[in-house]
Design a protein around this nucleic acid. Sequence first.
DNA 1: GTCTCCAAAAATATCGATATTATTTGACAT
DNA 2: ATGTCAAATAATATCGATATTTTTGGAGAC
Lengths: 221, 221
Amino acid sequence: MDAMLDTEGKETSATHGAYRKLRELILTGELPPGQKLKIEQLRGLLDTGASPVREALSLLTSDMLVERIDQRGFRAAPVSKCNFEEILLLRCNLEETALRASITNADAAWEDRLVLRHHHMKKASQNGAQDFEDAHKAFHMALLDNSKLPLLLRYCSQLYDLNIRYRYLAAGGSSYKKRDIAAEHQQILDAALNHDADGATRHLIDHYRRTGEYLSSQMEP
Amino acid sequence: MDAMLDTEGKETSATHGAYRKLRELILTGELPPGQKLKIEQLRGLLDTGASPVREALSLLTSDMLVERIDQRGFRAAPVSKCNFEEILLLRCNLEETALRASITNADAAWEDRLVLRHHHMKKASQNGAQDFEDAHKAFHMALLDNSKLPLLLRYCSQLYDLNIRYRYLAAGGSSYKKRDIAAEHQQILDAALNHDADGATRHLIDHYRRTGEYLSSQMEP
DNA sequence: GTCTCCAAAAATATCGATATTATTTGACAT
DNA sequence: ATGTCAAATAATATCGATATTTTTGGAGAC
């Protein structure tokens, strides 16, 4: 259709492209919680047709980032302290399960992956915030992915994204850097490499609870 | 458009109707695992347009009942013993969390709901299998829904559906009736009404494990 | 006989237009 | 003034048609 300028060359389907962009806009808060998402408006914003936009919104519904109101369109999922606390609770529960399973299955290849992801994350912390966000998620997911439990990983990934949204909303996405998060990551990594399941899960959960308390204190009731 | 014959009168949007029907077809195994889901074919089967079918398939993707292969359409999600065992594991974990929270929040209204759902389930066991299925799910979800944790409930509901699919696939949906399932339900109900969190979760998990072992034994490696 | 490559067929993804449904606006009666 | 109802407006949901991509099938070369 267009001149097929594959300078970017990565997006195959319009639906998938719209999905990625919309997801980003909602996660970062550029499309604020509760906002009505009109098809026409988004069609312009993402310059594509109405069908891809609709499908992207349907997909985001599964990620719980968009709500569909039957016959009345879509809107960005609302936020609440209650919702945030549930996310925190579930993350602690599910990530503990996944991390323990990962350590049970530990092998050299996994340890290599961990070390590598950790290194990349440290390097990325000097680059832009977006680079760090990506590397941070990659490190956390690497901790879990040796569990070989795809459904569980999917849930963890979903909850991770829901959580990061609250970080962006509370403080523009950089507040958590002020704590000494590097040390916390190092502790988790070391425990995992030592196959110390109890220690690793304790550090991981502390890591989440600490961030959680800070964010929770910043929100209205 | 049509003569709007609202004899049925419940389905508002074509998308939602297609979603419900497709979901049913996949859960019961009428559309077997791994099967290619061609738009045209479904368009005929559900007699509606291509757009509602497409959106319904997108929604089912979130339920993990349909897989989307980029640019290559959709297919019914595959099954495997591995996948089944993960579902069982996660259900035990998540439903325990939810049930304990429900009991923590226990009040008279919840207990009434439980008794009622249990009664309806017993009554429905004399009706058709579909009626019983619905009542069975309603009872199990009632056990959990006093947790007031909507995300958790959503995951439990999803996993419940994924599990029931295996029941249909393994034995046409009626095999589990041969065990004395009524007694097991009664035990769970009684423990819940007594606010006995340990007993209730133990009975619930045994209930799942027993069904799980039976189904697992019926599957190829 | 097998492999490669190209053309034909089928299926998907996307667009533009239309019908349907919700929302707003303003006139009228109280 | 205020509340209610109806027409106008806007937005969603759906359809039919087209462009793109994948898959199929078969002709020719080695």
